[in-house]
Amino acid sequence: KKIKIKIKVYNPETKEVLELEIEVSEEEAEELAKKLAEELEKKGYKIEEVEI
């Protein structure tokens, strides 16, 4: 079964909002969402919402 992940991120420095969407297997979904959120935060983005 495929799971659709939508991530909306906001960069306070540039006032930019990015929306990302990807489909992955159920097993990958939670781990991938967690890794993406961590990487984006390292780059200065503030995570507003992660929906699985």
Rank of each mutant, 00 (worst) to 15 (best):
K1N: 12
K1T: 07
K1Q: 04
K2Y: 10
K2W: 15
K2H: 07
I3C: 12
I3Y: 09
I3K: 15
I3N: 12
K4Y: 12
K4Q: 07
I5C: 02
I5G: 01
I5E: 00
K6I: 05
K6A: 04
K6H: 11
I7T: 01
K8H: 03
V9E: 00
V9R: 00
V9M: 14
Y10Q: 12
Y10L: 12
N11D: 08
N11H: 12
P12F: 06
P12E: 11
E13W: 09
E13K: 11
E13P: 04
T14Y: 08
T14G: 04
T14L: 05
K15Q: 04
E16G: 08
V17G: 12
V17Q: 11
V17C: 10
V17S: 10
L18T: 05
E19A: 12
E19D: 08
L20W: 06
L20Q: 02
E21N: 12
I22Q: 08
I22M: 12
E23P: 10
V24M: 02
V24S: 09
V24Y: 06
V24L: 02
V24K: 03
S25Q: 09
S25N: 14
S25E: 12
E26D: 06
E26F: 07
E26G: 10
E27D: 15
E27M: 14
E28G: 15
A29D: 02
E30H: 15
E30C: 15
E30P: 14
L32P: 01
L32Q: 13
L32G: 09
A33T: 07
A33S: 05
A33Y: 08
A33Q: 03
A33D: 01
K35F: 05
K35W: 12
K35L: 10
K35E: 06
L36H: 02
L36M: 14
L36P: 00
L36N: 00
E38P: 00
E38K: 07
E39K: 02
E39F: 10
L40N: 00
L40Y: 07
L40Q: 00
L40T: 00
E41K: 11
K42C: 09
K42Q: 03
K42Y: 03
K43T: 02
K43H: 08
G44L: 01
G44A: 00
Y45M: 15
K46T: 13
K46G: 09
K46H: 13
K46C: 15
K46V: 15
K46M: 11
I47T: 02
E48F: 11
E48V: 12
E49P: 00
E49L: 13
E49Q: 10
E49K: 06
V50H: 01
V50Q: 01
V50I: 09
E51D: 07
E51A: 09
I52W: 02
I52R: 01
I52Q: 02
I52P: 01
